[in-house]
Amino acid sequence: MKRTAIGLPPELARRENLVLRPKDAADVYAHPRPELARLVKNGAARRLAAGYYLLVPGRHLGDDTWRPDLHAVGLGIGQADYGRDGAALMGIGAARQLGAVPREIAATFIAVSKQRPPLVTEFGQVVFVRRDVAGLDLERIETEVTLGWVTTAEQTLLDIAARPTLGGLPAEAITEALRALWPRVDTDLVTELAAGQRKTAALRRARQLIEGA
């Protein structure tokens, strides 16, 4: 099924970030809210939360059972509000994306420039963490929802060790995540990052957990 066949304008079909707000469609629709509601009704979009919608990727059109990845949705929401370079997937969400957390989790964590409350979506909670995004060690990521940034294994390890309770996971799950990340970590780089970000204590804690001390 083609996206245009269900009434999705080409301007929206070409969006890199499939998360949008009504004002993002103001140059396409004179009255965006009812038009986005129509797209939801005909299966071309999903309502994420008040003021946020997700355009369904083309290969999932017609599949009412499809659920978007929460971490990709969180990144898309962050980008919608702060721009492509103003948001990054971090913490346990990044660890999940990097394959270090095998289990599904009900929240994701997005680094942005401003403090703001968590956003409860239809697919889980998006927690915004105030960080200097430009100062984080990042790598490119491609998801079904958007292209963007995720913290590297080194940055993710430091962030989790610095705030192990942020994800709400049990201590053993945090240790498992750190151990899964460690083989991917460049030890020289993580040591340099820890010094520059004042996270040497976090790196020491991570090593102790990984080594079972």
Rank of each mutant, 00 (worst) to 15 (best):
126 V>W: 02
118 P>W: 11
20 L>D: 09
128 F>N: 03
42 N>D: 11
33 R>C: 06
144 E>N: 03
145 V>T: 03
141 I>E: 00
11 E>I: 11
93 G>N: 05
135 G>H: 07
63 D>Q: 10
132 D>G: 02
78 G>D: 02
143 T>M: 02
144 E>Q: 08
142 E>G: 12
138 L>Y: 00
43 G>L: 03
113 S>G: 12
75 L>H: 00
65 T>W: 12
107 A>Q: 04
55 L>A: 11
145 V>A: 00
73 V>T: 09
140 R>V: 06
90 M>T: 13
132 D>C: 06
131 R>S: 06
107 A>L: 01
127 V>R: 12
21 R>K: 09
39 L>Y: 03
101 V>D: 00
138 L>F: 03
29 Y>A: 12
124 G>S: 13
15 R>Y: 07
61 L>I: 12
116 R>K: 15
36 L>R: 00
29 Y>Q: 10
100 A>V: 05
66 W>G: 07
39 L>F: 05
43 G>Y: 02
42 N>C: 14
66 W>H: 11
31 H>Y: 14
32 P>D: 11
39 L>P: 01
22 P>V: 06
46 R>N: 08
52 Y>P: 00
96 R>W: 01
64 D>C: 10
132 D>A: 10
113 S>F: 04
47 R>M: 15
85 D>Y: 12
111 A>I: 11
120 V>Q: 14
37 A>T: 09
68 P>Y: 09
28 V>W: 04
64 D>P: 10
10 P>Q: 11
37 A>I: 07
135 G>N: 08
129 V>F: 05
46 R>C: 08
98 L>A: 05
18 L>N: 01
103 R>A: 09
72 A>H: 02
63 D>L: 09
141 I>D: 00
67 R>G: 04
85 D>R: 13
102 P>M: 15
65 T>I: 07
102 P>V: 14
118 P>V: 10
133 V>F: 07
32 P>K: 08
85 D>V: 04
83 G>A: 13
135 G>E: 08
112 V>W: 08
103 R>M: 07
121 T>I: 11
12 L>F: 07
99 G>L: 05
137 D>F: 02
127 V>W: 00
54 L>F: 09
27 D>E: 15
81 D>S: 08
45 A>W: 05
23 K>T: 02
89 L>E: 01
48 L>M: 12
97 Q>S: 10
67 R>E: 13
47 R>A: 15
123 F>G: 02
10 P>T: 05
27 D>P: 02
16 E>T: 13
52 Y>R: 04
44 A>P: 01
137 D>R: 07
102 P>F: 15
9 P>R: 15
58 G>Q: 13
9 P>H: 15
105 I>L: 13
63 D>G: 08
19 V>W: 03
61 L>S: 09
89 L>V: 06
94 A>Q: 01
35 E>V: 04
17 N>W: 09
13 A>P: 03
101 V>H: 01
144 E>M: 04
34 P>N: 12
89 L>A: 04
121 T>S: 15
91 G>K: 01
